Amino acid sequence: MRSYVRCLLGLLLPVCAANAQEVPGVTDKEIKIGQTMPYSGPGSHYSTIARANEAYFQLVNDNGGINGRKIKLVSLDDAYSPPKTVEQTRKLVEQEDVLLIFDTLGTATNAAIQKYLNAKKVPHLFPTSGATRFADPGQFPWTMGWQPNYQLEGHAFATYILNNHPTAKIAILYQKDDLGKDYIKGLRDRLGDKADAMIVTELSYNISDPTIDSQIVTLQSTGADVFMNFATTKFAAQALRKAHELNWKPMQMLATVSASAAVLKQVGTEASSGVLALHYLKDPADPKLADDPGLKEWLAWMKKYYPSGDVTDEFNVLGYSNAQTLVQVLKQCGNDLSRENVMKQAQNLDMQLPMALPGIRLKTSATDYAPMKDLHMARFTGEGWELVGSIISGK
């Protein structure tokens, strides 16, 4: 009898173990997800996004979680270094056994893990990057972006310039990777046959560079009257300060990756007032939104769950909104939290996020991996953002 029981257990245990591994990161009580974020290094300001993610998941957990399961976020430092991102992501997938990778920060960092995650069939959801490669279901069916992609943003910038400054002489600073190249491609595509005449110069920088002062001096010397600042926060801030120091006063247009009131306030009012940027989320510093229900709810959440966070920092709005989107995906999964169903539900979203600007809706489908597509130009006042004109479609 004992040998029979041992034999039966020997047959059952491998089956049970296989079933347990069918849904990595999921138990009856927990859903474990992973991400990397630059808690150190040149992109460290962005780490507030991860803290906002975690704070929103805490709100969800305090209210019972997802169908009784609490969300556990394992967030590791990658220092904004692609090799480190690869190392930490492998740890998350192969050692931490997470269900999915969520909201990893950066274009080069996400690009470094994209093929690995797709080969492993691990959902790679809502990376904080607008590179077009993260909205390509044909080539990367397990990766879905979130924010408007940089080519769409380039389209929208070009539309605004053509409508409001059609004789512009444009100087461009860009990061020498997919981020910068996507912005330029989008801008040039929409400018069309006017692009070569309007763009007087394009200068790049590497994220390892200590400064971009020399590039700004060169850009000023071109006589450009429009400055496209396609840089991440550290370098965008340096560019604004240097332009102010040189008394160069073109119309300045700033990439969304750096369009944070908190960042611009550090630059200083004189150097940053009047800067234009495209937005799709509400500015928490906008006094006209004082009675907005979505903003009131967000401020109450910040006060309770992220009291050390800056309530003027749009990256905290981004982290909150990204997390809300993932929670919706997990809710739609019900009790089928297989990786396949996670991707299926990510392809079936249609929602108005509380902190998205009015008229900007998040939608996906099996062939549309670009959830956010519309943008609204805004001008920085020194304290917050003032919307200009109407919604611009990046499509």
Rank of each mutant, 00 (worst) to 15 (best):
D283H: 09
M302S: 08
H279T: 06
Q266V: 07
A285V: 04
L281Q: 08
S273P: 12
K303D: 10
D286N: 13
E297P: 08
M302L: 15
K303F: 05
K265V: 07
Q266W: 10
L276K: 09
L299W: 03
V275E: 00
S272K: 11
E270P: 12
D283V: 04
K303M: 06
L289I: 02
P293A: 08
H279I: 07
A277I: 02
E297H: 14
A277H: 03
L278W: 08
G294C: 00
L278K: 05
L278V: 05
S273Y: 11
K288D: 07
A277R: 01
P284N: 06
A271Y: 00
T269K: 09
W301S: 08
S272Y: 06
A300R: 15
L289N: 07
L295P: 02
L278S: 00
D286R: 04
A285F: 00
A285G: 08
V275H: 02
G274M: 01
V275L: 09
L299S: 12
S273V: 11
D283P: 08
A277E: 02
A300F: 15
V275K: 04
H279F: 06
V267S: 12
K296P: 09
W301M: 07
K296I: 15
K282D: 09
D286G: 07
T269P: 11
P287T: 02
W298Q: 03
K265P: 05
K296G: 09
A285E: 03
L281P: 06
D292A: 01
L289P: 04
W298A: 03
L295R: 05
W298S: 07
P293C: 06
W301R: 04
P284Q: 05
A285T: 02
D292C: 00
S272N: 14
Y280F: 06
K296F: 14
G268P: 14
W301P: 01
P284D: 04
E297A: 14
V267Y: 03
A271C: 11
G268W: 15
L295M: 04
S272H: 11
A290H: 14
E297T: 12
G268H: 12
A285M: 01
G294Y: 03
E270Q: 13
